[in-house]
């Protein structure tokens, strides 16, 4: 009897794991975008996502409600990121090739402008303090509510509001500054 129960429990756990892994995969793109916004570098973002998924796998028993899966993963990522900032100097590395403009790449004018805009934004995001960058990315990239951000980052909701407000003000300032100093793309005239 006991053995049968164990087998049934095992089979259930296999199904649960499979469901959990599918849910993880579904969240992968969102997690990566968030990690990229936080770490500012592709290789670190990849590591952060992997570490987050690994931790999620270990802690899957703690998840009470699958509806909150995205917020739960973001909280794990937040904790991993803070741990890495505190204990691991590798997060301070700067990979210049990651943030460099890809002007050498052959691309048409509109793609170049789009790329410049994207890069300028990413650079400006990188100049924000982590708290501001995190609050903005959780709100604007992930679409979390202030209440959810407050829970993910373990900060009062008033602080979240203030971080989003100040962060966006600073971001606008940095973008205006970068636009004023940026080389303009002059359309090529046909011969």
């Amino acid at each position: 009897m006991k053995l049968t129960k164990k087998i049934v429990t095992f089979l259930c756990s296999v199904q649960q794991k499979e469901r959990f892994n599918q849910a993880l995969e579904a969240q992968y793109d969102r997690l990566y975008r968030l990690a990229y916004a936080w770490t500012h570098q592709a290789c670190l973002a990849q590591d952060l996502v992997q570490e987050t998924m690994l931790k999620a796998l270990e802690k899957q028993g703690d998840l009470d409600n699958f509806d909150q899966f995205g917020a739960w993963l973001s909280k794990i990522m937040h904790n991993k990121f803070i741990d890495n900032l505190r204990y691991n100097r590798r997060w301070e590395w700067a990979d210049e090739t990651e943030v460099d403009y890809c002007l050498a790449e052959a691309c048409n004018e509109s793609k170049l402008i789009e790329k410049q805009t994207q890069d300028a934004l990413h650079l400006a995001m990188g100049k924000l303090s982590f708290e501001h960058r995190q609050a903005i990315s959780l709100s604007d990239i992930q679409g979390f509510s202030y209440q959810e951000i407050s829970e993910i980052t373990s900060t009062p909701i008033g602080t979240v509001m203030s971080r989003i407000s100040r962060g966006r003000e600073k971001l606008r300032f940095l973008l205006e500054k970068s636009h004023s100093g940026q080389r303009k793309v002059v359309p090529l005239r046909g011969r």
Binding site: R33, Y36, A37, T117, Q118, L121, H122, M125, I136, S137, S139, D140, I141, R168, L171, R172, L175
Partner: peptide, 9 residues
């Protein structure tokens, strides 16, 4: 700006 952030990422 909010839209730009979302679109860029």
């Amino acid at each position: 700006l909010k839209r730009q952030i979302k679109d860029s990422y």
